[in-house]
Simulated scan of single mutants.
Amino acid sequence: MIRLGIIGCGRISDLHAQAYLDHPGATITAVADTDPGNLATRGAAWGVPESARHQDYRDLLARSDVDAVEVLVPHHLHAPITLDAMNAGKHVSLQKPMALSMDDATTMVKAGHDLGVTFKVFENFVFYPPVVRARELIENGEIGELLSIRVKSNPGWSPTAWDVPAAASAWRIDEAKCGGGPLVFDDGHHKFAIAWYFLGLADRVHAFIGSTMDGLLDAPSMVSWTHPDGQVGSLEVVYSPDLQLHTEQYAQDDRVEITGTRGVIWITRGHGRMLDVPPVILYRDGETRGFSDMPTGWETSFLNSGRHFVDALLGGTAPSLTGEEGRDVLSFALAAQESSRTGGPVSLASGDRRPVGPLPGREPGQPRETGLG
């Protein structure tokens, strides 16, 4: 049984916690948050006794009944809390982006290895069923060799969207605490992780990052990049204040288009959705086919990522994203920030951590059922 402590009990913690509440090999034994209201609400909801609810995260780290922690705090606190947790002998699952600088990321990766603890950078989009299905189709050769990936991020509004607390909005626009804008750096991590998931780390990034008239959002923006094998990619971020979207969490539509030598795959949703079409669409050999036999709620990606962390701890296997992989994606996001500041392209050193092998549970060369005939 993996005994979890959750540090940071804001709104997003509800999605993280459910994975551990549902997993037969995990239990939430303690929580920490500086806000007494968050402590009381989440502690009661997750069955954590009052004696295990702490306003100081260090009290949680001192507990002998915590094996691992989920760190869900503002970005500038990621490095110090993660290092404290590692020094306390705890395994760590850390919300993205892992740090504000490559130096901090490297320090955390080294500490994890030196102290013998598992370090996962929590990225949920690579566990989102439509994204996973698209990769399965690609692994089956349905669109041939990959040529490009295009990602569209389009926030709008929704009557059913989450109410974001003012305090959460405030630190996300404070560069000293957030490290970059909420759409290109923070949420952009998901998009850069998707590109990494399909094509590995980029080797050159060129970005224009704009700003809304009120200065709160980093849109409209455009990020483009190349990969070592010649593929190209782009991220377009546009805020449409009057665009109504379907969602239960954030009012944002995410769309991905992946082009190969033989066909094209579209992933038509993410945080929420705009289009009433199948979540995955394949065009190949003059025919269009849709795939709807999968869960599409954004919360499913959190469940899958959290369960994966527990399974990795129980099985002694590497999580996804490892600290090294999270550092790669961070370098992608930071390169976009630097390119926008300087007005020129930024080169990245391409490592060997390219997630292009078989998905977990699939043997090399083993076909996967896709319903394509």
Results as ranks from 00 to 15, higher is better:
residue 8 G to K: 12
residue 8 G to V: 14
residue 9 C to T: 13
residue 13 S to R: 05
residue 15 L to H: 06
residue 16 H to A: 00
residue 17 A to I: 13
residue 18 Q to C: 01
residue 20 Y to P: 05
residue 21 L to R: 10
residue 22 D to Y: 13
residue 23 H to Y: 14
residue 27 T to G: 05
residue 29 T to I: 00
residue 31 V to H: 08
residue 38 N to I: 10
residue 38 N to K: 14
residue 45 A to D: 13
residue 49 P to H: 13
residue 50 E to K: 04
residue 55 Q to H: 01
residue 62 A to W: 11
residue 65 D to K: 03
residue 65 D to M: 04
residue 69 V to W: 08
residue 70 E to T: 03
residue 75 H to A: 14
residue 77 L to V: 04
residue 82 T to C: 15
residue 83 L to G: 01
residue 83 L to V: 09
residue 84 D to S: 04
residue 89 G to H: 08
residue 92 V to S: 04
residue 95 Q to V: 12
residue 99 A to S: 15
residue 101 S to I: 14
residue 104 D to H: 15
residue 104 D to G: 06
residue 105 A to G: 03
residue 109 V to S: 02
residue 112 G to P: 08
residue 113 H to K: 12
residue 126 V to C: 15
residue 130 P to F: 10
residue 139 E to P: 00
residue 139 E to T: 10
residue 142 E to F: 01
residue 147 L to F: 03
residue 149 I to R: 00
residue 152 K to H: 13
residue 152 K to Q: 13
residue 163 D to M: 06
residue 166 A to W: 11
residue 166 A to E: 12
residue 169 S to A: 14
residue 172 R to C: 08
residue 175 E to C: 00
residue 175 E to M: 12
residue 178 C to Q: 09
residue 182 P to K: 01
residue 186 D to K: 08
residue 193 A to R: 02
residue 196 W to Y: 12
residue 198 F to V: 02
residue 199 L to Q: 01
residue 212 T to I: 09
residue 222 M to V: 15
residue 224 S to P: 05
residue 224 S to V: 15
residue 232 V to N: 11
residue 234 S to E: 13
residue 234 S to M: 14
residue 243 L to F: 14
residue 245 L to F: 04
residue 247 T to S: 08
residue 251 A to L: 08
residue 252 Q to D: 04
residue 255 R to K: 03
residue 255 R to T: 09
residue 262 R to N: 10
residue 265 I to F: 09
residue 265 I to W: 08
residue 266 W to T: 02
residue 267 I to Q: 01
residue 274 M to S: 07
residue 280 V to H: 03
residue 280 V to N: 03
residue 282 L to H: 09
residue 286 G to Y: 06
residue 288 T to V: 13
residue 289 R to P: 01
residue 293 D to I: 10
residue 302 F to S: 02
residue 304 N to F: 15
residue 312 A to D: 01
residue 317 T to H: 09
residue 319 P to V: 04
residue 327 R to K: 14
residue 330 L to H: 03
residue 332 F to M: 12
residue 332 F to G: 02
residue 334 L to T: 04
residue 341 R to F: 15
residue 343 G to R: 13
residue 351 G to L: 12
residue 354 R to S: 05
residue 355 P to V: 09
residue 358 P to S: 15
residue 363 E to G: 04
residue 369 E to G: 03
